[in-house]
Simulated scan of single mutants.
Amino acid sequence: MCILSINDDATAPSLRDKLEDAYRRLEASHQAVLRLALRLDDGDAADDFRGIDPDAHIRRVLGQMHAARYDADAALCGLVYGETYRPTPTPSAMAVEMQRRLQRNGGHSARPAALPAVASFAAE
């Protein structure tokens, strides 16, 4: 028996639709990184980025790729898990969620937050 609440939307995308969309965005972000890398390999310098700050552009393109990678991974986890993916509240997951909140608030976080070290060494 399925009971729909007032918040349920019959036209909401399925988990499969979300996965396909996430992978399309990931592919587009990979293409943007590839175009940028090829421009740099062709010899483009800061002056060749007319009207934009090349450092900010590099951070934005790479940030979008990493955000798209996370979204694709989350969509894949959601599909195989069978419901919307909810990350474990690790420092990394919290940083990603805070960046996503910035985007929802209208800001654009181009640079991923600094993540904690993977391993720590205690004094013996």
Rank of each mutant, 00 (worst) to 15 (best):
M98D: 12
A28F: 02
Q31S: 13
H108F: 12
L79V: 09
A117D: 10
A113W: 03
R60V: 00
A113R: 09
R69Q: 13
A93V: 13
A74I: 03
D55P: 00
S29G: 03
P112A: 04
Q64P: 01
R16S: 15
V33N: 02
D71A: 15
R60C: 04
L38P: 00
D41F: 11
A12I: 06
I3A: 13
F121H: 11
D41P: 06
S5P: 01
D9Y: 07
A22K: 00
E124W: 10
G106W: 07
P112F: 05
L38G: 00
P13A: 07
S14F: 02
P112L: 03
R104C: 05
R111T: 12
I58Q: 05
T84G: 03
G82Y: 01
R104A: 08
A37Y: 05
A75S: 09
V118E: 08
R50Q: 09
F49L: 00
S120C: 06
Q64H: 09
D42G: 15
E124R: 14
A45W: 06
L40T: 07
L36P: 00
A22W: 00
D47Q: 15
G107I: 05
S92C: 13
D47H: 15
H66K: 03
A37R: 09
D71R: 08
D42R: 10
R59M: 09
T84L: 15
V33P: 01
C2Y: 15
A22L: 00
L38Y: 05
D48T: 13
R39Q: 10
T88I: 15
D9W: 06
E124G: 11
Y70A: 10
V80G: 05
A28V: 03
A95E: 00
R59I: 08
I6N: 10
R111A: 04
M65A: 04
T90L: 08
G43T: 08
A75N: 00
D41G: 13
A110K: 04
G106N: 04
E83Q: 15
R100P: 04
G82E: 06
S29L: 01
T84M: 13
Q103S: 11
A67F: 04
H57R: 08
P112G: 01
E97C: 04
E27Y: 02
D53Q: 13
L79P: 02
L4E: 14
E83G: 09
G78K: 03
F121P: 03
T84C: 10
G82N: 06
G106L: 05
L38I: 10
S92Y: 08
L19N: 00
M65C: 05
P87Q: 04
A93Y: 06
D53F: 09
F121E: 08
L79D: 07
A114L: 03
L38C: 07
R104V: 02
R59C: 08
F49E: 00
C2P: 12
S5I: 11
H30L: 13
S92W: 07
M94P: 02
